[in-house]
Simulated scan of single mutants.
Amino acid sequence: MLAQIVLFDGFDLLDALAPYEVLWAGGDIAGGALKVELVSFEGAREVPSTPTGMSVKATGRIDLERADLLIIPGAAGSLGGGGPGSIPALLASAVGTGLADVLHQALGKPGLTVGTVCGGSLLLGMAGLLKGRRATTNHSALEALKATGADVIAARIVDDGNLVTAAGVTSGLDLGVYLLERTVGPRVAHGVEALFQFERRGTVWRAQGHEALAW
């Protein structure tokens, strides 16, 4: 199996690298059952994050023919204002690169799961890809996500079939562990939890079982 983590200008480092490390470790202790790549829409290049200015190298281009998992991080920038360094502006810029078309294809490809961390789901929403889909994001952007037409669930991880979204920045760790459980199995996921001395937090929300009544 192959997981590709998509980098774009202004991506958040922890959003991308937390699931990368978890998935890489899972693939390693599973004997190579899962490979992980850092990619971009444009192909191999140095991709700058913000606000630190640190760059991370994407080793190739998004390849939907090979990928089984495609993970989209959020952006790191200013929370207020509408300048070019703001999070909404950075996400909009990523959508404008043509990434939206690739993500639309990814969500329509059988056998491929799209995961997001933090504002990654808002990126999908801004591209018009979350209408009627159950999703979550950082607590500060739940209303913005709802405005894109998503059915917003205030949970740390939301599993909507071929779309698995994670909430705030550190939930990228939880996303990675959950995706390991889904794809490689719970023994590998537990092994990574033990290796990292980290336990996945909260219940993964799925549309199963009795509907919860409002308190």
Rank of each mutant, 00 (worst) to 15 (best):
S49A: 15
H104Q: 13
D63L: 03
I87Q: 08
P73M: 07
M54V: 15
H104R: 14
V102D: 09
S55G: 11
A106N: 00
I87K: 11
A106G: 01
A89L: 12
A44S: 12
V95I: 00
L70W: 06
L69G: 08
L103D: 07
R61A: 02
G85D: 07
A94T: 09
A92I: 04
S86C: 02
G43Y: 04
G82H: 14
D68S: 05
E42C: 09
Q105Y: 03
L90W: 09
L90E: 02
M54G: 07
P51C: 07
D101N: 10
A94E: 00
G74D: 01
G53S: 10
T97P: 11
G53H: 13
A94M: 02
G82I: 00
V56P: 06
L103I: 02
R61N: 00
A44V: 07
A100I: 10
H104E: 15
L103Q: 01
R45H: 02
L64V: 08
T52E: 14
V56L: 13
I71M: 13
L103T: 05
L79W: 15
G60A: 02
A76I: 03
G98A: 00
A75K: 00
T50W: 15
R66I: 01
K57I: 08
A44N: 10
A67R: 05
L70R: 04
P48E: 02
A92S: 15
V47M: 08
G74S: 03
V56F: 14
E65C: 00
D63K: 00
A106K: 00
S55P: 14
I71W: 03
A76D: 09
H104S: 15
G77R: 05
G98I: 01
V102K: 09
G80L: 15
G43N: 01
S55C: 13
T97Q: 10
G43A: 01
A100W: 04
T50D: 10
E65N: 11
V47D: 10
R66M: 07
G53L: 13
T59N: 06
A76V: 02
P48I: 02
G77S: 05
L99T: 01
I62F: 13
V95F: 01
A92C: 08
S86I: 05
L79F: 14
A44C: 07
